[in-house]
């Protein structure tokens, strides 16, 4: 199995060097680049072709939000962005998710949790920190409360699936909940993402809340 290629973006060299050692000690992860600013991150990402970018939010010379938006604009599928934050209640967190980040993790997280979050982001089969993420989106989404009509036509099943995705359930959990096979769930999730033009689950959850499909 080829290791996941990671790009570390943080303006503090100590955070980067610490992360590098921690992550490289995992056999299935490899750090292919580091950057100290958002602008640098764009350069290095173009060169090093990472699967996942670990992105700090507040940085000089283009912050993590702008850099994430730019990365997503270049290619909506790769790399995926995992935002690293010092504090849960960071005001910028929701904006970075809106900009296209797939999830966030706390810098103080246990190394295993961090590694897990990176793998989850790369796989895309569930939300990172489902409870926190859901609460953050539910609390911050500027709900326009236009009802499900604001979303493109979803079949009944797809709506069920979206509701559960927005509730933070993984594919496996949704399969159990709806008595479907995992493969079927995967198909439904893919078609929901396609219809919502969401690149991943996090974006789908944001769309669900912002459209009023989910009521905070």
């Amino acid at each position: 199995m080829t290791p996941l290629r990671l790009l570390l973006v943080d303006d503090d060299v100590l955070v980067r060097s610490g992360l590098r050692v921690i992550l490289e000690s995992e056999p299935d992860l490899t750090v292919v680049g580091e950057a100290g600013t958002g602008r640098q991150a764009l350069e290095v990402a173009a060169r090093a072709d990472p699967d996942v970018v670990l992105m700090d939010v507040r940085m000089p010379d283009m912050d993590g939000i702008a850099a994430t938006a730019e990365l997503v604009a270049r290619d909506p599928q790769r790399p995926r962005v995992l935002v690293l934050t010092t504090f849960e209640d960071d005001d910028y967190l929701y904006r970075s998710l809106q900009a296209g980040a797939s999830g966030f993790a706390l810098k103080r997280a246990d190394p295993d949790e961090l590694v897990d979050a990176i793998r989850v982001v790369a796989r895309g089969s569930s939300l990172v920190l489902p409870d926190l993420t859901r609460r953050l989106i539910a609390a911050q989404a500027p709900s326009r409360a236009r009802g499900a009509a604001a979303l493109p036509e979803l079949t009944g099943r797809e709506a069920d699936v979206l509701r559960l995705v927005a509730g933070g359930l993984s594919n496996a959990e949704i399969a159990t909940e709806l008595f479907l096979s995992r493969e079927t769930v995967k198909t439904h999730v893919s078609s929901v993402l396609l219809k919502l033009r969401a690149r991943d689950r996090t974006q789908a959850v944001i769309a669900a809340y912002e459209s009023g499909f989910m009521i905070a």
């Binding site: 503090d12 100590l14 955070v15 060097s17 610490g18 992360l19 590098r20 050692v21 921690i22 000690s25 010092t86 504090f87 810098k107 103080r108 190394p111």
Partner: peptide, 22 residues
């Protein structure tokens, strides 16, 4: 607090974690 103590502790934590691994 965020910029100084939060920042310093985060960097220290990551350095300590990394050091233990090495």
């Amino acid at each position: 607090l965020h910029d100084t103590i939060g920042h310093a502790l985060t960097a220290s934590l990551l350095q300590a974690t990394a050091a233990r691994r090495t």
